[in-house]
């Protein structure tokens, strides 16, 4: 369980201060696929980076499984980060490492001793899970966007995290690939029991996989509830506006953009 209590984050110095997050209170339960929705600049990226302390909160607490991790440093901090997987909008794969070596990265850097063959075996398992075990020797630049995000998902899961943070994980992908990545994340959530925190500006994405949603605007949570509640009976004007602007039918359309991101089964 992730509890965020009265979290504030500001950047800059005293004379030029920029408040990004205001008094955020959120509880994310084990097994949730929790969507954090908002337009760009709303603070959602900063919020999710506070969970694994890539950003240090200015005030407030981050409590994970009952432990206050807000001030973790040194080895505690590295262990915490290792226990939280993360995927990114632009995949952030290491370009000079093969697919297999990208996936072993988290195992190489963590403190626990694992032999090289164990690492490779574990990475192989994960690549099988994302259906890319035939690409292990290739390099990221040889893969399509959808395939790269699958590698990133394998990398995020390799050290058996209980939590996975997804930062606009499908924003760089076409609709068809987005749908298949979301389905993969959904099945990882169900089958491996990984709690997902998913940031997105797209309501369609949130609607497809999230069970609970928080809407963030200008650094404040303006609405929170189950997906059905938020979409069925939106309360805040911001949510209503987001719903009006977002074409919820996009996810059911088949991607007609030039498809350089076709998945292996479609290739």
């Amino acid at each position: 369980m992730i509890q965020i209590e009265r979290l504030n984050k500001s950047f800059g110095s005293a004379d030029n201060i920029h408040h990004v997050l205001h008094d955020i209170d959120l509880t994310i339960n084990d097994g949730d696929v929790f969507g954090i929705i908002g337009s760009s600049g709303a603070g959602k990226s900063t919020l999710v980076r506070c969970i694994n302390l890539l950003e240090r909160p200015t005030s407030g607490k981050i409590i994970i499984d009952g432990k206050d991790v807000t001030n973790y440093k040194g080895k505690d901090l590295l262990d915490l980060r290792e226990s939280i997987g993360m995927i990114f909008q632009n995949f952030s794969l290491f370009q000079q490492r093969s697919v297999l070596k990208n996936v072993t990265f988290p195992l190489e850097v963590n403190g626990k001793k694992m032999s090289k063959s164990e690492r490779l075996e574990r990475a192989h398992e994960l690549l099988k899970l994302v259906e890319l075990d035939d690409k292990i020797k290739q390099y990221p630049s040889q893969l399509s966007g959808g395939q790269q995000q699958r590698v990133a998902i394998a990398r995020a899961l390799v050290s058996k995290p209980k939590i996975m943070l997804c930062d606009e994980a499908t924003s760089a992908l076409d609709t068809k690939t987005t749908a298949s990545i979301l389905d993969l994340l959904g099945s990882i959530n169900r089958e491996l029991g990984v709690t997902m925190v998913m940031i997105t500006h797209s309501l369609a994405v949130a609607q497809r996989v999230c069970n609970r949603i928080a809407v963030i605007d200008d650094g404040r949570i303006v609405e929170e509830g189950t997906t059905a509640q938020v979409f069925g009976n939106p309360q805040s004007p911001i949510t209503k506006e987001l719903l009006r602007n977002d074409n919820l039918t996009t996810m059911s359309q088949t991607g007609d953009e030039s498809d350089n991101s076709s998945l292996p089964e479609q290739a």
Partner: peptide
């Protein structure tokens, strides 16, 4: 983003230097 990814997997500064920056 690569440095951030390295950090997010628990790499320490030294590991980020030689496994991300230099590599």
């Amino acid at each position: 983003g690569l440095v951030e990814a390295g950090q997010s997997f628990g790499a320490n500064t030294w590991q980020i230097v030689y496994k991300v920056y230099l590599k």
